[in-house]
C-alpha cells in the first residue's frame, strides 16, 4: 500500500468518524429524519415546478420544430424577434392597462364594501356571504354568465340600456375594439373584488375596539377616527393585497381567454394570452417561451421592488 493510499484511507476513516459522531448526536439524527420527510415534496417540486420552470427559461433560446419537437439553439434570436416587433409591446401596454385599471376599481370597491359590511345593519351575516359569492364562482361560469348578460342580441344589459334611452341600439360589448378592454376589466373586477373585501374585512374585525374608544375619548370625530386609526391599521394588509392582486391580474389568462380570446383585433391581447397564442395557436413554442421569460423578468423586478419596499415596514413592527 503506498503512502498516498494510506493517507486517503486515514482521511476516509476520519471522515467516517466525523459522520459517526454527527450521527451519534440525537439532535442531528432528528434533523436528518425531518429533512428526509421533506424529500418527497422537494422531489415533486423539482419534477412539476422547478424543472419545468428552468426548462421554460432555457427554451426561450431555442427554436422548436412543430411536429418532431426537435430543438435548435438560436441564441437571442427569439428575443430579438419578440422585442423587435410591435406585438409584445402592445401586449405589455394592454396588460398594464388591464392590471392597473382593474386594481384601482377592485381596491376602491373592495375597501368601500368592506367598510360598509363592517357596520351594523340588518341581515349582515347573509349580506357578507352573498357579497363574496362572485369570488367563489368557477371562472368559466362567471365568464359565461357575463357573456349572456352582455349578449348583443338578447342580453338583458343592452335591453335595459336601450329602454332607458342611454343607447339607441344594442352594443357588442366584447366585439367593439374600443369597449372590449373596458368590459373585460369590469367583469374581472366583479369577480375578484370580494377577495379584497375578505382581506380588508378580516383585518377590520381585528382592530381593537379600545383604539376607537380611546380616540373617541380624545374627541376624535368619526372621520378622523377613520383617518387616524382605521387606515393606519389597514396599511399592511392594503399593501399585500395590492401586491397579490397586481401579480394575479398581471398573469390572468382565464378571464380574457374565455371572454374575448384576446380579440377583437388584439384589443385585449395581454401577455399571458399572447404566450398561449404564440405557443398553441401559431405553434411557435420558442417564441412563446421567450415572451414567458420576459414576463418572468418583469415579475422578478416586481418581487424585488415589493420586498425592498416592505423591508422597512417590517422593521417598524
Amino acid at each position: 500500500m503506498d503512502a498516498g493510499g494510506g493517507s486517503t484511507s486515514v482521511r476516509g476513516n476520519r471522515g467516517a468518524g466525523r459522520l459517526a459522531r454527527f450521527w451519534a448526536r440525537r439532535g442531528n439524527r432528528t434533523a436528518v429524519v425531518g429533512a428526509l420527510l421533506l424529500l418527497p415534496v422537494v422531489a415533486a417540486f423539482i419534477l412539476v415546478i422547478a424543472g419545468p420552470l428552468a426548462r421554460g427559461v432555457i427554451l426561450g433560446f431555442y427554436r422548436v420544430q412543430q411536429i418532431t419537437m426537435n430543438t435548435r439553439f438560436v441564441g437571442l434570436g427569439n428575443f430579438e424577434r419578440v422585442l423587435g416587433g410591435t406585438q409584445f409591446w402592445n401586449a405589455l401596454w394592454i396588460t398594464l392597462q388591464y392590471t392597473v385599471g382593474g386594481l384601482v376599481l377592485q381596491m376602491v370597491l373592495g375597501v368601500g364594501v368592506a367598510l360598509l359590511l363592517n357596520q351594523h345593519f340588518h341581515g349582515r351575516a347573509l349580506a357578507r356571504s352573498l357579497a363574496i359569492f362572485p369570488y367563489l364562482l368557477p371562472i368559466v361560469v362567471a365568464t359565461t354568465v357575463w357573456k349572456w348578460l352582455l349578449n348583443p342580441n338578447y342580453g338583458i344589459f343592452n335591453t335595459m340600456l336601450t329602454d332607458v334611452g342611454l343607447i339607441s341600439q344594442p352594443i357588442g360589448w366584447f366585439s367593439e375594439p374600443d369597449l372590449a378592454l373596458g368590459s373585460v376589466i369590469l367583469v374581472s373586477t366583479w369577480r375578484v373584488f370580494p377577495f379584497v373585501v375578505i382581506a380588508i374585512l378580516g383585518r377590520l374585525q381585528n382592530i381593537p375596539r379600545q383604539l376607537y374608544d380611546a380616540a373617541a375619548t380624545d374627541g376624535a370625530s368619526a372621520w378622523s377616527q377613520f383617518w387616524d386609526i382605521t387606515l393606519p391599521q389597514l396599511r399592511s394588509v392594503l399593501i399585500i393585497t395590492v401586491f397579490l392582486r397586481f401579480i394575479w391580474d398581471f398573469n390572468d389568462f382565464n378571464t380574457i381567454a374565455l371572454l374575448t380570446g384576446g380579440g377583437p383585433a388584439e384589443a385585449t391581447l395581454t401577455l399571458p394570452v399572447l404566450i398561449y397564442q404564440l405557443g398553441f395557436g401559431q405553434h411557435q413554442l420558442g417564441l412563446a417561451a421567450a415572451v414567458a421569460d420576459l414576463t418572468l423578468i418583469l415579475l422578478s423586478v416586481l418581487f424585488v421592488l415589493y420586498f425592498w419596499m416592505t423591508k422597512p415596514l417590517g422593521d417598524q413592527r
Binding site: 434533523a31 429524519v33 421533506l38 422547478a50 420552470l53 421554460g56 427554451l59 398573469n251 399571458p272
Partner: peptide, 28 residues
C-alpha cells in the same frame, strides 16, 4: 424539525405559490 435550508424552502414555496401558471404552460 430544524435543519439547514428550512427557511429557504418555506420562502421558495411562497414564491412558487405566486408564480403564474401561464409560464409553466410551454415547458409542461
Amino acid at each position: 424539525f430544524s435543519y439547514p435550508g428550512q427557511k429557504a424552502t418555506s420562502t421558495a414555496i411562497l414564491f412558487t405559490y405566486l408564480f403564474p401558471s401561464v409560464l409553466m404552460l410551454v415547458p409542461l
